[in-house]
Design a protein around this nucleic acid. Structure first.
Lengths: 149, 149
DNA sequence: GTGATTGCAAAGCGTTTGCACCGTA
DNA sequence: TACGGTGCAAACGCTTTGCAATCAC
């Protein structure tokens, strides 16, 4: 954990935490380093296991408390899947939608601006004022989707 | 609870339970009658409170066990919302998408077949094999969305 | 030095399980 | 009558909270 991370995303997140008045501690850095660059959805338990490789004395409670702060700062977002809703990924800039591999948890964003017309149509038909929307696709990624499944 | 329900949806659900080898009991009927015709998402706790008006001796455990069976038979589906994922509604026939009021929990389905082109496009760009998708819109329904909010 | 942060242990909450009694088929 | 279903109480897993010791600033 003394290694110079020199990853711009991690540095950005640490800076955001500091700017919000939070202190930069070794356990907190271990958690941030684990999530900030993850391509896969991570549950608190998974963050805990992975971050402990960087900081073995880490407590699970610290993971929860760090997740809370990162969520509050909009740096991560919870991912809802058929299998459960306990995982997080780095938040997308702007309004994007999710593509998630149900085998390995790989998550990718894609632009969903093609939905505006549909949403207006549904709003008109239903009388709802639409405030938010979720579009998520589930499947198998290139690595998991190959033959003999 | 002795009252003749004579609601075709309720009768259909009770028949499906019976056909699957489950017995029709008064507590189970109270839960089915509560969910089968609900226009609003219901958590197990809410089902419990509402179903107790029909069968006051009902136990919360029976709600969970009935939900499990209805889910297994595809009669209900879990609803995922920003505020949590503990609620259920009657399942949609075919592939439909959801529109949910964040004030009162009213849920409506709409057809999402307009998504096929988008999904193919995203599959091609990402290399994912898409197996399932969720599209959900959140907002305020006609009754909740009115003025002075 | 001071106050935020930590890890532990305990509490909290929604859900599931064990069990003896009950009621459907 | 037989056996699935019931409610209670206890167990469970995940998450949060209370607390004294620690550490960033």
């Amino acid at each position: 954990m003394t290694e110079c991370s020199s990853n711009p995303i991690i540095d950005e997140w640490l800076g955001r935490l500091q700017a919000a008045g939070y202190r930069l501690t070794a356990p907190r850095k271990a958690v941030v380093e684990t999530i900030a660059t993850s391509q896969h959805v991570l549950s608190p338990q998974e963050m805990y296991e992975q971050a402990r490789e960087r900081y073995p004395a880490l407590g699970l409670v610290t993971v929860y408390r760090t997740v809370e702060k990162l969520d509050e700062l909009g740096l991560i977002q919870r991912v809802h899947q058929p299998s459960g809703c306990h995982a997080y990924i780095p938040a997308a800039p702007g309004h994007q939608h999710l593509l998630i591999c149900q085998s390995c948890g790989r998550a990718e964003y894609f632009s969903g601006d093609r939905l505006d017309a549909l949403m207006e149509e549904v709003a008109g038909e239903s009388g709802f004022q639409i405030q938010d929307h979720w579009l998520q696709l589930f499947g198998k990624c290139r690595d998991c989707g190959v033959n003999f499944s």
